[in-house]
Each structure stands twice: as structure tokens, then as C-alpha cells.
């Protein structure tokens, strides 16, 4: 997962790119077998331990999801963390410093 957080005017713009297959459960492999669904369902972003943004995703979100949002009250040098959980219970958390 890559996170870029940058002060823009009076807000912080956060962009993230998550490596994930985002399988819909409707695709078939070469032998014609359905590939099981495997996709990110929840994403939560925290600024200094306070939730500033969260998302529920479905199977229509593209492979390797890109998300961006903005919030006020953040400053350069402070930290932002993003956590995701997928449909198979896998999870990843990453921290980044606001530029």
C-alpha cells in the first residue's frame, strides 16, 4: 500500500494505492472454474488516532484500488494511518507522514 498525504490550502489531501486482486467472484480461470471472491470491504484512515475517513467497498472497485479524500485539521509532519480489511479477513495497516 502506498499513501501520499499532502497539505493543500487549509486541508490535507490523502491519496492511497492498495495492491489487491479485488476478485469479484464472477470471473472464471482458464479451466472454467469460478475464482472465489476476494476483495477489500473496509478502509479506515486515522489522523493522530482519530478516524477522518472510512469506506465500504464492493466488487466494482477496480483491481489495486485507488482512493483519495481530504480532511481539515492536519498539519505537515503529523502522521496518518490507513487500514484495510478484505472479504477473507486479511488486513494491512500503513502509516505515512503528512508533507
Amino acid at each position: 500500500m502506498k499513501i501520499k498525504a499532502k497539505v493543500k490550502g487549509d486541508a490535507v489531501a490523502v491519496k492511497m494505492l492498495i495492491n489487491h486482486v479485488m476478485e469479484t467472484g464472477r470471473r472464471k480461470d482458464e479451466s472454467g472454474e469460478l475464482i472465489p471472491a476476494h476483495y477489500i470491504k473496509e478502509v479506515v484512515a486515522k489522523h493522530q488516532d482519530a478516524v477522518v475517513f472510512s469506506a465500504h467497498l464492493g466488487t466494482a472497485v477496480s483491481k489495486d484500488p485507488y482512493l483519495s479524500f481530504k480532511f481539515k485539521g492536519g498539519a505537515s509532519g503529523e502522521s496518518i494511518s490507513v487500514t484495510w480489511v478484505d472479504s477473507q479477513g486479511e488486513t494491512e495497516t500503513k502509516e505515512s507522514i503528512i508533507k
Partner: peptide, 25 residues
């Protein structure tokens, strides 16, 4: 799409209402 709901974003009082995502159609 087979299931129309693609994504829901939950904002907070500090949020700026501007979100981006890439979807499949």
C-alpha cells in the same frame, strides 16, 4: 453492474466532501 452499489464513503465533521475512486463498469 451485476450489483450496483460500488462504494460508500463515510465522512467526518473534519472532512472536505471530495472523494475519488476507480470503478469497474
Amino acid at each position: 453492474n451485476p450489483t450496483p452499489l460500488s462504494a460508500s464513503f463515510y465522512l467526518t465533521p473534519g472532512s472536505v466532501a471530495e472523494v475519488s475512486v476507480r470503478l469497474r463498469m
